[in-house]
């Protein structure tokens, strides 16, 4: 609503807002992040509860997609087993850049209650994927997941696009020089 307030601003800017393209792009990206509909274990039930009427995740602009190719971020909701790890990696690789990962629940964070004798449990999804937001809890409350979501949106809004590209290009060049 801040935008509309500024439009009614008595200073009289005639609806002109000053900002950078980066801000605009990030604002747009953060407010319509589509997620991959992908449940793993117990946390998926809480994840479903967040989707459903009581908590209503869509008001954050999050729309479930069944295909990883259309998704912006994935919520790893539950225990990742070693049998699943390869598949999960593959699903993640199918997602288009930029992509984000929320690790929901203790199991996805660190193996959770299965850390000690779980011979078939991957102890933390960050061993195979880069995780952006960790949501603790076993399972996390829906409110916790929502906070994780807001944190992710915040992260997306703070992201550098052009400067980062320039910097990365410079770094790449430097690396290449080093190789030579």
């Amino acid at each position: 609503m801040g935008l509309l307030n500024r439009l009614n601003d008595p200073i009289g800017l005639d609806g002109i807002i000053f900002g950078t393209v980066e801000d605009l792009l990030n604002w747009g990206r953060s407010k319509s992040d589509w997620y991959l509909q992908f449940g793993l274990a117990c946390c998926a039930i809480e994840f479903m509860a967040v989707n459903a009427s009581h908590f209503d995740m869509m008001r954050y602009g999050c729309i479930p997609r069944s295909s990883p190719r259309q998704a912006d971020f994935v919520i790893i909701s539950g225990t990742v087993t070693l049998k699943m790890a390869d598949r999960l990696k593959r699903v993640y690789e199918q997602m288009a850049e930029p992509k984000y990962v929320i690790a929901m629940g203790s199991c996805a964070n660190s193996g959770g209650p299965y850390w000690e004798h779980g011979y078939h449990v991957l102890k933390g999804v960050d061993r195979i994927l880069p995780v952006d937001v960790y949501v603790p809890g076993c399972p996390p409350r829906p409110e916790a997941l929502q906070e994780g979501l807001i944190l992710l949106q915040k992260k997306i809004r703070m992201e550098e696009i052009f400067r980062k590209r320039k910097r990365l290009a410079e770094e790449d060049l430097a690396n290449q020089m080093n190789y030579k």
Partner: peptide, 14 residues
């Protein structure tokens, strides 16, 4: 099946 095999029976023994 087995994509969510979390070793319950092994845990139970310990």
């Amino acid at each position: 099946i087995g994509y969510l095999h979390r070793c319950f029976e092994k845990h139970a023994e310990n």
